[in-house]
Design a protein around this nucleic acid. Sequence first.
DNA 1: CCGCCGATCCTCT
DNA 2: GAGGATCGGCGGG
Length: 194
Amino acid sequence: MVARDLLGRVLVAHTPDGDVGVRLTEVEAYAGRDDPASHAFRGPTARNAVMFGPAGHLYTYFVYGMHWCANIVTGQEGDASAVLLRAGEVVLGQDIAHARRPAVARAPLLARGPAGLATVLGLARDASGEDLCTGFRRWEVLEGQPVPADRIAAGPRVGVAAAAERPLRFRDTASPSVSAYRAGGRVRRRVPGG
DNA sequence: CCGCCGATCCTCT
DNA sequence: GAGGATCGGCGGG
């Protein structure tokens, strides 16, 4: 399983509100313990324990005090590799998606950005560790239409300072749902007294 | 369209 | 105690 193979696949969440499906258009690979940008780089912790488990499980994490982001674990046990789901197009349950993101008016942008994608699918803390392969009552992964190779662009990961030279972000260049690139390592300092 | 900036709290040091 | 795999509102061009 490689990150780019996830492009074009449809992740469907069965929730109490109804079904929401997202066609993945942008993903990022995190290469386990060898990757300084990975949550697993410094070894297992309570938060990242799921990453060290078998492939096919969701790993969600909380960032910036308000957002959840979702990964799919891709490596063998102990490998701790995962793919961050960065953007997609809502292809099922668009009304529900809109209700979950009232601030977003345009449908193509409903699942733009990892936190927005997780919100639309209802993925938060309780989703972490769930097995996509056996949890078919809650989730399905559909094959979808493969994205042609010449439409897939690779580049540096968004907001990541470490290992910035690694082209581990993959996106469908034909999709308007792909999030904007932003370099990592941004230093935002408050100037004392000014 | 683009850039700046605050919000907000969990996690690891 | 610091900082983060982010988002949306606001202001300017």
